[in-house]
Write a protein that binds this DNA or RNA. Structure first.
Lengths: 192, 192, 192, 192
DNA sequence: TGGTAAGCGAGACGGTACGTCTAGTCTTATA
DNA sequence: TATAAGACTAGACGTACCGTCTCGCTTACCA
């Protein structure tokens, strides 16, 4: 969420951190839907106005909290083996989702985005696009090196890969490395 | 949402219909997030208790409203050409999502499900599973007829197909028939 | 409350008793204000309609419950000593109020009567008037026997005596025999 | 009702007045029992929370409304004639009860007090005690001047006088100056 | 260096909706 | 036809938050 602040120079980093910390801990304790701006302010020892001054909505705070000081792009390495690299990235994403409160926050923000276009775009720009972007760039190199066919439909591939993961996440279905292997196997059949 | 009624025999069908009608029209007018139980009751000319008596949450009402008297399973025909049939089903789903308020309701219910496990399961059982089930059954026949390879990973295929559609829907990306063609082309490469 | 029933012949005495019993026990447990028709019906194992059929309001039920099978007139004996007799009656009233749930019920019914004229009249007719009536009758005899002066203002006397007791009851002030003695002493000064 | 405010300095006098005004007018229109906090808030153009923030119950609001900016002590003058002074005060009370909505409010608050000890005490402290206090003080002077006998039971006298008036008020019996004359005549017989 | 304009914690405010409770009416099935 | 049961419309209850708005206080910037 691109906060366009009244005067960012005067911003109190201390309060900002307290708010994001409180947000993270609250989501972990009661879940996204039960977190309120009031509760965040209370927990952070902060006036409500300080939150409203810098963020337009609860979703925006949560998005900031989830991605703060945390590279949302799970590295897509370049080992020379495209499929291995893709598997590595997807498994990295799966791990991040599973291990931390990030998964809960992500699900909550996607939910909130269903009735807040700006937030939905922000989620896309801050979390999805970077990953897809890295994938597309890596795919271009793979094509140059003839790891995949020249006519491979990279965009559809991206939607398939990230759609699969999000589908299972949002429907509370388990996602583990074996799912990723099966996914990559299926998606890259005939493209290799 | 399987309403487990106090005594379903005594239920007033008239009130039930008024509630579901009001729900549908309200979602169309102000969107899922801005619909309240109070507003539904007001619009339906019904006491709030009558809603709380039969449904556990707003999401459950909306799910009922979205699937009432409306087969949520888009027919997966059996023309003999498996891929054509799959394309037909997926395009049917896309149409349903695009043309009616069903898309808005579905997005809302998925969002609500992120903080309500029971609702999320109900969505799966009532909307997703029937479609996936039809796909899996059709796939079994296709395998018998050697339309697809015997070792095709049907479950992953299902997640890929429906995950792709849901991913684009939830991120407010357009989904049109050309996307479906590209998706099916990619998913069935090497499986055919 | 004079219930003018649809057809009293058909009345189920069993239900009537269950209702009045439930009312008494509920007032004892949670106080007049927290007793509801619903709770009485629940406790009595009776349909709400059965209550509404026979009584016009909660207060009427309570009044019936408080005075059922219980002579609300505390005997005003005739020992020949008027003041002694009055003291005996008043102390009897005080005892009844103090010892049983009758006090709580009476206070509740008076409270309810402040917004229900019919109930207020019923309370007067069923509880106050009989006591006052006995007092007036006894006073007449006392006058005949020259126990009190011929010009004694009996009506004001009655209001003073019963008003004093009710005042202390409604303001949760203690009322004990010594108060009664002081009251009678004061009220009959110069009348004797 | 002694409101123990969260922070009285921040209190909005404007809202306070709107609430008390609305309360007075509503009691006049529909009677104490039919006044609800919701209706007061609606009429006053105020959030319900603003009422709950400063008052613990409807009764407390009504008590404040009834006694605001209104000396609850009806002057007990000191003309030198004790009985005349008492008559003047009692007739003043009767007038106030009869002429304004104060009577309805008072009856309602007494009724509410029967299931709310705090409120009942507040009524006593704010309305009854001041009047009784003035009476007792005046009686002491009267005793000093030998207007009444030294052994007069002033406390019982007070209960008799105010009990008489309240008794007739709560039972919807008329109270007019002649009743007061008779009462005073009776109460002070033999004390003079 | 003192004035002024933010940002800050705090929390009252007008509101909306929550989920629960009860009122009083109506319907159904049983006896 | 009276009853137990309980669904129905209606609406108040008291609570939780919303987003806005002061209040004093502190903290930087600028004159």
């Amino acid at each position: 969420m691109a906060e366009t602040p009244p005067d960012a120079r005067r911003r109190n980093e201390c309060a900002r951190n307290a708010i994001l910390d409180a947000t993270v801990s609250l989501i972990g304790e009661v879940g996204y839907a039960n977190v309120s701006i009031e509760a965040i302010a209370r927990r952070a020892g902060v006036g409500k106005q300080t939150i409203y001054r810098w963020w337009p909505s609860k979703g925006a705070v949560v998005l900031d909290a989830a991605t703060r000081s945390l590279d949302p792009v799970v590295l897509l390495p370049d080992t020379g083996d495209f499929l291995d690299d893709v598997r590595a990235q997807l498994k990295g994403i799966v791990e991040r989702i599973a291990d931390t409160g990030f998964g809960a926050a992500y699900r909550g923000v996607i939910a909130a985005g269903q009735s807040d276009d700006t937030l939905l775009e922000a989620v896309f720009d801050r979390i999805i696009e970077p990953n897809v972007g890295a994938f597309v760039a890596r795919a271009a190199r793979a094509r140059d090196r003839d790891e995949i066919r020249a006519d491979a439909d990279v965009e559809t591939l991206a939607d398939v890969l990230y759609g699969f993961v999000e589908f299972r996440l949002l429907h509370a279905l388990p996602v583990d490395p074996r799912h990723i292997d099966a996914l990559v196997e299926l998606a890259f059949r005939g493209v290799r």
